[in-house]
Computed example of a mutant assay.
Amino acid sequence: MSLDSSAPLNSLGIAKPVSETRVVVAMSGGVDSSVVAAMLAEEGYDVVGVTLQLYDHGAALAKSGACCAGIDIHDARRVAEEMGFPHYVLDYENIFRDAVIDEFADSYLGGATPVPCIRCNERVKFKDLLETAKDLDADCMATGHYIQRKMGALGPELHSAEDANRDQSYFLFSTTPEQLAFLRFPLGHLPSKDATRALAAKYGLKVANKPDSQDICFVPNGDYASVIEKLRPGAAEPGQIVDMDGNVLGTHKGVIHYTIGQRRGLGIGGLSDPLYVVKLDVDNRRVIVGPKEALATRIIPVREVNWLGDGQFQDQSAREIAVKVRSTRPPRPAILRPTGPDTAEVELLTPEEGVSPGQACVFYENETSRILGGGWIWKG
């Protein structure tokens, strides 16, 4: 669709009349994306709803109440029918397995703690689905994520959501500038999830009080190890639990059952001081434990950096920023030092505990809500 540069911008920042602006809405079946679709349809946009079937919702890996499970596809279709716009379900099972689930399993086998929701956004929703939206002649694609897209002096910027408790910037740091130009996030400015549910009630949506999805969509009840064993039979090989000096304290049923920073469930009771998992030695099938202070990390190597700040990443000087090393932790002061086109060293001004390879390290500009990008923590 061609754009008229002389026309005024509509509410989505596109220089076209609302009725001539086609928006593909990524609908998971939850309240957030349903509200986005209903809101835009009511405003008069040419809305097309698309839901991805990411796995066989009847298989053992799936669970009820998760993103893109069977009932959620039904709920998304019902919203489209109620609001009077077309809705399509696309089978992305093979893409999702290849791009997300397989890497999840292999990362755990390698002793890392992956974040598959980031890879899903990066490799499926904001890649293949976004291209599908363009094939449907859409002017933009909208999602129910809690994050803000703001226009800066050099183009669109990514900013944290108004509601810090709902902010999803950690899961969206790998959004590229090209993708950001096409994406819209209509909920990012809302003050709370209650405001979203109030809108759902206003539009008469039956999903208004639907619970939020929890955990990773393809991991039943948060039991990562059982999923990995199904995906990689024989992965859970027993080994030793040792202290930092190599002394054997006990045995384990597989490294995949442990994560950095874990304290409970180690099976080595009777010791005077609490011990935590400080390292996973996959090659030797060893779980290494130590005191809490051994978890403290100051220097974090980061790779696969996606830079959303101004200029080229490798041209940046060392700068003070804030970083998140876990989705549940607030940004902390740090110094960012680029070491290559997509690698960096992050120095935490105050050491963090439980920094784990496979997690994301997300960069935030000091004194503003802007996300500068981020990368993946690795072993160094």
Rank of each mutant, 00 (worst) to 15 (best):
G84N: 08
G84R: 01
G84W: 03
F85G: 05
F85L: 04
P86T: 01
P86G: 03
Y88I: 10
V89I: 12
V89K: 01
D91C: 07
D91M: 06
Y92T: 07
E93P: 05
E93C: 12
N94E: 15
N94S: 15
N94K: 12
N94P: 00
I95A: 13
I95M: 08
F96R: 00
F96E: 03
R97M: 14
R97D: 15
D98W: 05
D98I: 05
A99Y: 09
V100M: 04
V100K: 00
I101E: 06
I101M: 13
I101S: 02
E103H: 12
E103S: 14
E103Y: 12
F104A: 05
F104T: 05
F104K: 00
A105M: 05
A105V: 10
D106P: 06
D106T: 12
Y108P: 00
Y108M: 14
L109E: 14
L109R: 05
G110Q: 09
G111Q: 03
A112Q: 13
A112M: 09
A112R: 07
A112T: 01
V115Q: 09
P116C: 04
P116L: 00
C117K: 01
C117L: 09
C117N: 10
I118L: 10
R119H: 13
R119L: 15
R119W: 11
N121C: 09
E122Y: 05
V124P: 14
K125R: 10
K125D: 13
F126I: 03
K127G: 11
K127Q: 15
D128N: 12
D128Y: 15
L129P: 09
L129R: 01
L130Q: 10
L130A: 12
E131R: 14
E131I: 11
E131T: 10
E131S: 11
T132S: 11
L136K: 05
L136S: 09
L136I: 06
A138C: 08
D139Y: 04
D139G: 14
C140H: 02
M141N: 05
M141T: 05
A142M: 07
A142P: 14
A142I: 03
T143V: 06
T143S: 12
T143M: 07
G144D: 03
H145R: 01
Y146G: 07
Y146E: 08
Y146Q: 04
I147W: 01
I147V: 15
R149G: 12
M151S: 10
G152E: 06
G152C: 06
A153E: 15
G155V: 03
P156F: 01
P156N: 02
E157G: 04
E157D: 10
L158E: 02
L158V: 04
L158G: 04
